[in-house]
Amino acid sequence: MRRFEGQVVVVIGSATGLGRAMAEEFARQGAQLVLADIDTNKVNEALQSVEALGAQAIAVKTDVMKREYLVALAQATLERFGCVDIVCSNAGVGEYSCSAWEKGDTDLDWVLGVNLYGTAYAVSAFIPIMLKQGQGHFVSTGSNTSLQPIPSMAVYAASKRAVLGYCEALQYDLWNADSAVKVSVICPNKVITDMPDSARNRPQNLAGRTPTAQEIARKTAFLAAGGHTPDEAAKIVLDGIAEQRFYILTNPVDAEQAQAWAAGVRDGHLVRPNYAPPKLGR
């Protein structure tokens, strides 16, 4: 028995990386799919992939920084399938590595706009539908930095910690409304994706310093050192969704680090991370 047989699943940020791997694994598990991404060429490639796996699916161009795109995505989902069972808000970007005091205004607007506002806009578009249905599952992709930030990625860490807090509050609100709608937050450790090159989709009006080829290569090597492939991570994630876990971790070491962070809160000090990020600079 395939675990997601016949369920309607929306995967936002599904053109590449973890999102595409999740979409393909959902297809193997019998889901009907709505694929959303700002990169129309690559999301159409993902569409062909899930259709080859036997899924009924559509692709919808979606800019998560603009609320109207999420509203249109929800409408397209209902028009094609009549309901929605699972929404995976997976679109995400990361700024170039530098110290917190070197971040610019456009770095804040871009990273928070995609990672946090994109999640909030997806909630506004899809949660009312789920409430009307009486069921549904909203899944947002945070990061292990949602649990413990890392050096040199202050804006990314802030956005992902905010996503976790936002989704925790969302679940509280759903409980207070006596709703059966569930929420999960994926907090993946290193996954080998093209996230280091996410500036390729950065809008011109929020332009900032673009990472050099050397910086992208360093970040890519950092992810590859002990990181999961997208397919490996997707299988772990779908297990967590099927089990309706709120926190979905891909590496148990992050739970241990969260416990160390909580002990530091209790004792009044900040715990220093026990790993080194990629070197700063060009």
Rank of each mutant, 00 (worst) to 15 (best):
E5N: 05
T210A: 11
Q7P: 07
V191M: 07
G104Y: 00
P196W: 05
P203G: 01
R80K: 15
G54Y: 11
V265A: 06
Q135N: 13
I12L: 03
R67A: 13
A255L: 15
A213G: 07
K103G: 02
S159E: 10
G226Y: 07
Q214H: 10
Q171L: 12
L18R: 07
E51T: 12
E215N: 06
G208E: 06
L206K: 09
V11K: 05
C88H: 06
E102I: 00
G264A: 12
Q133W: 04
Q32N: 06
R2H: 02
T212N: 05
A260E: 14
M1K: 12
L108Q: 08
L238M: 10
A177D: 10
Q171S: 13
Y96L: 09
T220W: 13
E25V: 00
P149K: 00
R272V: 14
A122S: 15
I216T: 13
G113L: 03
E24M: 13
G13I: 04
L33E: 09
A234G: 02
S179W: 02
Q214Y: 08
P188Q: 06
E5F: 03
A180Y: 10
L47W: 03
V11G: 09
A74P: 06
A221K: 15
K160R: 08
P188L: 02
T220N: 06
A36F: 03
D254E: 13
Q257Y: 08
V84K: 05
G134W: 05
A154I: 04
R161L: 01
R161C: 05
P211M: 04
G118N: 04
A262S: 14
S49R: 11
K279R: 15
I248L: 13
G113Y: 01
Q48K: 13
V43C: 02
A262V: 12
A36I: 02
T229E: 02
G142V: 03
Q257K: 15
Q214L: 15
R161I: 00
L131F: 04
S159V: 00
T106A: 10
W101M: 10
A242K: 11
D239T: 15
M65F: 00
S99I: 14
K219F: 14
R67G: 00
P211T: 11
G165H: 07
K42Y: 01
G227S: 08
A207D: 11
K235H: 10
A255R: 13
F138I: 10
L280A: 12
A276D: 14
C167N: 15
N189K: 08
L249M: 13
V60P: 03
A180M: 06
V50G: 10
N144A: 04
A23G: 07
V9F: 02
Q257E: 14
R28E: 09
L270Q: 15
A21V: 05
G264P: 05
